[in-house]
Nucleic acid binder design. Structure first.
Length: 267
DNA sequence: AGATATTCCTGGAGGC
DNA sequence: TGCCTCCAGGAATATC
């Protein structure tokens, strides 16, 4: 379940392995993932040199030397394996051959991922995205986005127009740290609470990136598979556990998604 | 425009 | 053992 920190960690891994390499060939083992692969993708990227690997929200952006940009989203179960030794796994969908003789394999059992290519600064999947939480995102910005929203704060945090990169896990954890109930209508969150929430979102994402970065070697695994790592969570998937305040962690369903929280200390 | 439900997909867990 | 159902996740899409 890659959220922003996991994607950022994958970006670091891909960058260190890919930048400066030329793509000698590409093999697509199916028609597409969540969307069909663009027509002529193999021809379009073969021979190109990778200039940079960037991230926007949970999207990986791979800059090629002809200013084309390859876009990769891991969906929920996507994984890049660098320096792979084989590429015939059940859910291996894309193989990229680099000029150093290595093979990078994209594996994704659930196929919620995306692989696309575009040129210019506009892409349908990127155009509507909200602010990066680790950029100069402020509590004033969050406050103004929430002021007319009647849905629960938890749901708004998952809305990529409000802020990007925060998924189900970090939304739960950030609300817990901020002592804000996930059920609160977003428009009732005070400016001071937005400040706390923004601070905690920045904190937990930065912490997770640090953990991912420092454990990149282990996290990458012996086979070089970049996926997601296990972070220490306080409430996520901890239903029934005792909270530090003495209360009990509970699970509730909001818009068909699990929310974990402590009724005693989140108000 | 905002809110809500549905959709994609597979694997793992739990029930019987 | 095997089947069935449910659940997890991101985010576009459709519908109200």
């Amino acid at each position: 379940m890659p959220e922003l920190p996991e994607v950022e960690t994958v970006r670091t891994g891909l960058a260190s392995s890919w930048i400066g390499k030329r793509i000698d060939g590409v093999e697509l083992k199916r028609d597409g993932l969540r969307f069909p692969f663009p027509k002529g993708l193999e021809k379009r990227i073969s021979g190109r040199v990778i200039r940079n690997v960037r991230r926007r929200a949970k999207y990986l952006l791979i800059d090629l030397d002809n200013s084309d940009i390859l876009l990769s989203h891991l969906g929920m179960s996507g994984k890049w394996t660098l320096d792979a030794t084989e590429s015939d796994g059940k859910h291996d969908h894309v193989v990229i051959y680099l000029d150093d003789g290595t093979m990078s394999v994209y594996n994704d059992p659930r196929r919620f991922g995306v692989l696309d290519i575009f040129n210019g600064d506009s892409h349908k999947l990127l155009d509507h995205l909200g602010p990066e939480p680790l950029g100069n995102w402020t509590h004033e910005d969050l406050f103004s986005k929430l002021r007319n929203r009647k849905s629960p704060i938890k749901i708004c945090l998952l809305d990529q127009k409000v802020v990007v990169g925060v998924g189900n896990i970090y939304a739960c954890e950030a609300l817990y740290r901020s002592k804000i109930s996930p059920k609160r209508k977003a428009c009732t969150i005070k400016k001071k609470e937005c400040k706390k929430l923004v601070d905690e979102i920045k904190n937990i994402l930065a912490e997770a990136i640090r953990v991912g970065g420092s454990s990149l070697r282990d996290f990458a695994g012996a086979d070089g598979a970049l996926g997601y790592f296990i972070h220490q969570f306080k409430v996520y998937d901890k239903e029934g556990n005792e909270c530090e305040c003495g209360g009990t962690i509970e699970r509730l369903v909001q818009s068909n998604r699990s929310t974990f929280w402590c009724k005693s200390c989140q108000k």
